[in-house]
Computed example of a mutant assay.
Amino acid sequence: MTTTSTPASEGTQRGAPAEAPMESKRRGEQVTLGIFIAVPFLALILAIPFAWGWGLTWVDLGLALVFYVVSGLGITVGYHRYFTHGSFKAKRALRVALAIAGSLAIEGPVIRWVADHRRHHAFSDREGDPHSPWRYGETVPALMKGLWWAHVGWLFDIEQTPRTKYAPDLIADPDITTVDKAFPALVLTSLLGPAVLGGLLTWSLWGAVTAFFWASLVRVALLHHVTWSINSICHAMGERPFASRDRSGNVWWLAILSFGESWHNLHHADPTCARHGVDPGQVDISARVIWAFERLGWAWDVRWPKEKRIEARRMTA
């Protein structure tokens, strides 16, 4: 069996490491990024009037749900809990599958995503954090500007997290570097796959068009904004029952759409924990999926929450 690599930023609750020279983002990457943010977001805005009139079928909804769940869990279980924090170990086939599934979310290649998130934990809500909403201060205007930066603005920053510093384990993994390099092809698969399936299932060109709209554009836009909301909303509001060195909070109304990622306070209090929603009533779909992988023998050494460890981090009244 093949084990996961140890995250380079293990123990992110300790003092922040010294920064490495930043990498630069090319102009072509900036333009491409803008297109992939603006077009799906425009589709999301048009979704409601489009649905009221025509062009929405059960095939569209089914494809959108399937692609949302697969790509969303690829981010939460794969990119985040597995590759970034090493919350469990996985067989080679599962490791590759998680990297591919996360790539279908079109949130960036796996190594880039992991490097950014490890850096976020190393400097959470302090100077050096790539997407803190408190970047500009604590006044209302400053926070509004900071929320925009944390939600989407940081993606356009020309400086990028040095991957060699924050994700050397993934760079050294030939399977993951192969998936990382295949990101453009996986983007096309994520966008065109629903259209092809929609056309085949309805045996019509119109079925392909509506599937592309709902299961590609709208699905990608929704998942993007849910993910970005963890960066912005969950660091500006929410309950904070656990002690952490930042302003991460639990936002319950994002829990289902984010597959449990919005129980963000415990995650920052105990980053390697495989379950983020540890209190009664806190639904954590990602943790349940990891549990299923463990039962199937595909994952092991899962870092489940331990009561003593959790209570040690709980804020006293």
Rank of each mutant, 00 (worst) to 15 (best):
T6S: 15
A243F: 10
A299S: 09
P21E: 01
I171Q: 13
R119C: 11
I48P: 09
T164P: 00
F36L: 14
V96A: 08
V69R: 05
W54V: 12
I285R: 07
G62C: 07
R303Q: 15
I45D: 12
F88G: 03
G15Y: 10
A64F: 03
L155S: 02
E127R: 15
L56N: 13
R240M: 08
F259Q: 11
L254E: 01
A255M: 10
A16L: 10
D279Q: 13
I100F: 11
V283P: 13
P141N: 08
K145Q: 10
H151S: 00
K181S: 11
R14G: 14
L296C: 13
A167K: 05
G102Y: 09
L200H: 01
A47N: 02
L42E: 05
T272D: 14
G193P: 00
D169L: 06
V196D: 03
G137C: 10
P40A: 03
L94N: 10
L191N: 00
T178E: 08
A299F: 11
L147P: 00
P133R: 01
I230K: 00
P141A: 07
W134P: 09
G153Q: 02
P174F: 03
S262P: 07
H85T: 12
M315G: 06
A43Q: 08
E10P: 11
S190W: 06
G297I: 12
E138K: 15
S103L: 06
R14M: 08
R112L: 08
S9P: 00
I48T: 15
W154R: 02
G128K: 09
A101I: 05
V59D: 10
R314A: 03
L56V: 15
F259C: 13
Y82Q: 14
L186D: 02
L104H: 07
H224Y: 13
F259D: 04
D175H: 08
R27G: 09
R92H: 09
S204Q: 03
V218E: 06
K181T: 04
T4P: 07
T202Y: 07
G277Q: 06
V59L: 15
P109F: 00
I176T: 05
H117M: 09
W253S: 05
A90N: 13
L200Y: 04
I35W: 13
G199V: 02
I48K: 14
L42T: 14
I37Q: 04
M237E: 04
G28T: 02
A299D: 03
T164L: 05
L188K: 00
V302A: 07
A312E: 09
D173Y: 02
G11Y: 06
W206L: 12
W304N: 04
L191W: 08
V283N: 08
K306A: 15
G53K: 15
T178S: 12
L296A: 15
S262D: 00
E159N: 13
R247I: 04
R118M: 05
K145F: 00
G72N: 06
